[in-house]
Computed example of a mutant assay.
Amino acid sequence: MVYPPRCTLCGVPVESDFGLCGSCWRDTPFVSGLCCDACGVPLLGQDTGTTELCDDCLTIARPWSRGRAALLYRDNGRKLVLSLKHGDRHDIVRPAALWMANAIRPVVTPDTLVVPVPLHWTRLLRRRFNQAALLAHDVSKQLGLPCCPDLLQRTVQTRSLEGLGRDQRYATLQSAITVHPKRRQHIAGRPVLIVDDVMTSGATLSAATQACFSGGAADVCIVTLARVGKDA
């Protein structure tokens, strides 16, 4: 009664907490239907149950087995990501995690461990939170799976990837992410789901995936809140 539910994006009254109004829902680029099995970007055509890959994932060998994204990184999708990442809008985590969980649910198995992409401690100190860790925590709750927020660590303070090309991004992140030595026993022989807010080139997720396999993971899948597509 004191704080009536409002749209997460525009603030107009809605029926339930952490929801979107009809207009914002319509204008939010949710991924549905046929999508790339490796990164989640939507594809043209009907879903026939066979594995389909986008042009990027046909060209670039992805180290993880399967991937999904809840949104495209444009319009309201971009607004949601930036509000969470730079606007301290932690209220976005709850609906975002629900969308991500719904996207990846058919892919994961009951013994999967949910893991966020890590931040270097210096960047974490400046930002005060890791948005991937917040998403991973709520995604794990939605899926009923365990979460290990500090399984991975970023041991190298890399420069910002913004504005870098694909090859530069991969080179920058080479060997920058490792499994925390005190958490290695949690990953040995089990599948892992890596969570991040956005996938652009896939360099960060590739580095995290390779770290998981080096630590003994049996399989790795990925899920992101948003995927940068060609029309983004």
Rank of each mutant, 00 (worst) to 15 (best):
D75N: 05
D75P: 01
N76G: 15
G77I: 11
G77A: 13
R78E: 15
K79F: 12
K79T: 12
L80S: 04
V81D: 01
L82Q: 12
S83F: 04
L84W: 15
L84V: 14
K85H: 13
K85P: 10
H86A: 12
G87N: 02
G87C: 01
G87A: 04
D88G: 02
D88N: 07
H90N: 12
D91G: 14
I92Y: 15
I92T: 12
V93F: 02
P95T: 15
A96Q: 07
A96L: 10
L98K: 12
L98Q: 11
W99V: 03
W99D: 03
W99Q: 04
M100C: 11
M100I: 14
A101P: 04
A101W: 05
N102H: 14
R105E: 13
P106K: 07
P106Y: 07
V107N: 08
V107Q: 11
V108S: 00
V108Y: 00
D111Q: 11
D111H: 14
T112A: 10
T112Y: 12
T112G: 06
L113G: 00
V114T: 09
P116L: 05
P116A: 06
V117G: 01
P118M: 13
L119E: 07
H120P: 07
H120E: 13
W121Q: 05
W121S: 05
T122K: 12
R123Q: 08
L124E: 14
L124R: 14
R127Q: 13
R128V: 04
F129Q: 06
F129G: 07
N130Q: 04
Q131Y: 08
L135K: 11
V139G: 01
V139H: 02
V139I: 10
V139F: 05
S140A: 15
S140D: 01
K141R: 15
K141T: 00
Q142W: 00
L143S: 00
P146E: 02
P146Y: 06
C147V: 11
C148R: 08
C148N: 09
C148Y: 05
P149Y: 10
P149Q: 09
D150T: 13
L151H: 08
L151Y: 07
L152P: 02
R154L: 12
T155C: 08
T158W: 03
T158H: 06
T158D: 03
R159L: 03
S160I: 01
S160Y: 02
E162I: 15
E162L: 15
